Simulated scan of single mutants.
Amino acid sequence: MSKELTIVQATNPKPKPHPDHLGFGKYFTDHMFVMDYHKDNGWYNPRVIPYEPITLDPAAMIFHYGQTVFEGLKAYPTVDNRTLLFRPEKNFERLNRSCERLSIPLIDEEFVLSSLKELIKLDKEWIPTSEGTSLYIRPFIISTETNLRVSPANTYRLIIILSPVGSYYPEGIHPVGINVEKEYTRAVKGGTGTAKTAGNYCAGYKAQASASEQGQAQVLWLDGIEKKYVEEVGSMNVFFKIKGEVVTPELNGSILEGITRMSIIEMLTDWGIPVVERKISIDEVLQSYENNSLEEAFGTGTAAVISPIGELNFEGKQMLINKRNTGQLSKKLYESITGIQTGKLPDPYKWTVEVK
């Protein structure tokens, strides 16, 4: 693979959006990173170029067989005008695990991370500085070969785009409502649930539409076999605080290995708060709610960071958790992890990486 990164600067910069109206994933910066793959050349021609549409043949295999993976991470501004990434090496490690599952050639994680830093430096002025905002980073790989055979492609393209964003949920750190899904299945062991691939997400749209009709923000998925055990929320891993102990579903071959999830577990352990990874059934959650031992529930993910769960709707039963208030632990976790991400608090775990 050619290690020489080419940079072509945009000559007509775009107007930047107002920081109070960013939303999530609506605006994109002036540049993007692109790199191609061919089975005979490996990954080659890495470049930062002006943000532009991509042109693909109608027979490009991505359109027909969905061979694609992606990641999501963020760049955060600090009060002293530095830019921090949060555990970015873990995102590129996970991207390669997704590539492995989808039969996509692996990337050089260190090189792509260094190229990302160059991209961010070029578009640094796009990083918003208002409270709760950040620069969202979306690396993705698509199969580009023109062929309708059912097999892995011989050519691919890796692209990284950047988007200034506000809160993922309109509620922000305020508790959200979640609908427990029993009809549809998100993933099963041996499937692609552990990979970040496009089909995992669009397959949840029907359940999400049903949740939205009931006034809920997201879907809580149960296991695909027994429809009994809690797995994850559509865009987050999930945690329950029961009798002082924090419980999260164990990684079982169908749950995405969240980087925020990993960080929360490490942080709770460091704080001396009991945290366990194990199977937890929705009936156990319901029982703990009914006997008043369910103290808090929250989701974790790059987009939302920490999102308190104020309501679970299961088969017509409405569980109002902590009187739909943000719990003390959820608040402390949110303030601690975002404080580290933005450089407002010390980083004893050495999680942040400065872009320089």
Rank of each mutant, 00 (worst) to 15 (best):
L85V: 06
N91K: 09
T68Q: 09
R97Y: 01
F92C: 05
T68I: 10
Y65L: 04
Q67L: 13
F92T: 04
Y76A: 00
E71Y: 10
D57M: 14
Q67S: 03
G66Q: 04
G72M: 07
R82H: 11
V69T: 04
I62E: 06
R94K: 09
M61P: 13
G66T: 02
A60E: 14
V69Q: 08
F63Y: 14
Y65E: 04
A60P: 00
N91Y: 08
T78D: 09
M61R: 15
V69A: 12
P77N: 08
T68F: 15
E93K: 15
T83S: 00
G72N: 02
P77D: 03
R87L: 13
G66K: 01
F86I: 12
N81K: 11
A60D: 10
G72P: 14
N81F: 14
K74C: 00
E71K: 10
V69D: 05
K90C: 10
F70S: 05
L84A: 07
T78W: 08
T78F: 01
S98W: 00
L84S: 08
N81P: 04
P88H: 05
A60M: 14
D57K: 11
L95Q: 08
G66Y: 01
N81T: 08
H64C: 00
F63C: 10
T83V: 05
I62K: 07
L95K: 03
N81S: 14
N91W: 02
T83N: 09
R87F: 10
P77K: 01
K90F: 09
N81G: 13
Y65Q: 07
L95I: 11
S98G: 03
K74E: 00
F63P: 04
R94H: 03
R94Q: 02
G66M: 10
E89H: 08
I62N: 11
E71A: 02
N96H: 07
R87Y: 13
E71I: 09
D80A: 09
P88K: 05
R94A: 01
K90H: 14
L85R: 00
D57G: 09
P58D: 04
L73A: 06
T78Y: 01
E71L: 00
L85K: 08
F63I: 09
L84Q: 00
F92P: 04
F92V: 08
V69Y: 12
R97L: 02
T78S: 13
H64A: 03
L85T: 04
G66W: 03
F86D: 12
K74P: 05
S98C: 12
Q67N: 13
V79K: 15
L85I: 01
I62A: 11
Y76M: 00
M61Q: 14
S98Y: 03
V69H: 02
K90M: 15
F63K: 07
E93Y: 09
F86S: 04
A75Q: 03
F86W: 00
F86E: 05
F92I: 02
L84K: 06
N81V: 08
A60R: 13
